[in-house]
Design a protein around this nucleic acid. Structure first.
Lengths: 158, 158
DNA sequence: CAGTATCCCTCAAGATACTG
DNA sequence: CAGTATCTTGAGGGATACTG
């Protein structure tokens, strides 16, 4: 994984924080890479739908929550709609929101393995059907070989 | 994936932003969930090691970079050491830093699929050996069945 | 090269009060 | 319930100058 850096003599980095040529990682981080958005998405993936449930589950100020929810809706990750049951509002994941499941799982698994001291316990993600913990995500080649940073690299697409 | 919410009548959310019982996602986000740390890690996974290379590749202010590198070292994601070639310093990934590869790949793949307009191009992650793009990550059960948010849930470990 | 030391400034975030 | 409106604070971040 190598970001193709300076080729010409001109400065590679743009004046602001916009990372040089469009890097999907940077884009993703810009869209969902802040604490609250990620935690909102985590809870949405867990089934939370109402403003109040998000608010209390996260302990976030309401104005902040309003802002984040609006952003997520604008970005197409959540859809806001009136609940079938009358006048309640609800925020439901869109397809692209749901596809963040992998990101959340990756963060969770890394956190489980590296963000807890020996004595601490933490929650685990479990398969509904079997009751077994979800196995670790692996980056694999189509033939099943495990890929790491050491045997992959980034290529700029024409 | 369901965060077990209020069981008793007491408020679930603690006064501050500390999410209720230790959630690995929240922990991970607290450790590496800010823009610069993630991008530093991305570049580190791509082989960047020196202060200057990070600084120019990212276009980040040096004081910020100093701060983030120190944090990452303190958190055990990077190790700072003197390069074999004399007096240069270098920051190399530790084991737990390397294991963030999955997170970065997940972010990248999501970004590729959902953070670009139709006309735009972007870089891709490629297998060194085969030259083929890295296949999409999937959350799978040990028997190979694909898992989604809909058929998993979070369980609080005793 | 690899930082440290300052200065400044914007915006994220929290608290609180109010509303349809 | 589901927000909106305000106010205030502090941290994050950028620019620049300096140093061993």
């Amino acid at each position: 994984m190598t970001t193709p850096s300076a080729v010409s003599g001109r400065p590679v980095a743009p004046p602001n924080g916009w990372t040089d040529p469009p890097c999907p990682v940077a884009r993703a981080v810009d869209l969902v890479g802040d604490r609250w958005s990620l935690l909102i998405l985590r809870d949405a993936l867990g089934g939370t739908r109402s403003f109040t449930d998000f608010q209390r589950g996260l302990g976030v100020a309401k104005n902040i929550l309003t802002d984040r929810l609006r952003r997520l809706v604008d970005q197409g990750l959540l859809e806001r709609r009136t609940a079938p049951s009358g006048k309640r509002q609800e925020y439901v994941l869109t397809g692209s929101g749901e596809r963040l499941f992998t990101v959340i799982v990756a963060l969770r698994q890394w956190g489980e393995a590296h963000a807890f001291d020996a004595g601490e316990t933490h929650s685990v993600l479990v398969d509904d059907d079997t009751g077994a913990p979800v196995p670790r995500l692996r980056v694999e080649r189509s033939d099943g070989a495990v890929l790491t940073a050491a045997n992959t690299h980034v290529e700029r697409l024409a």
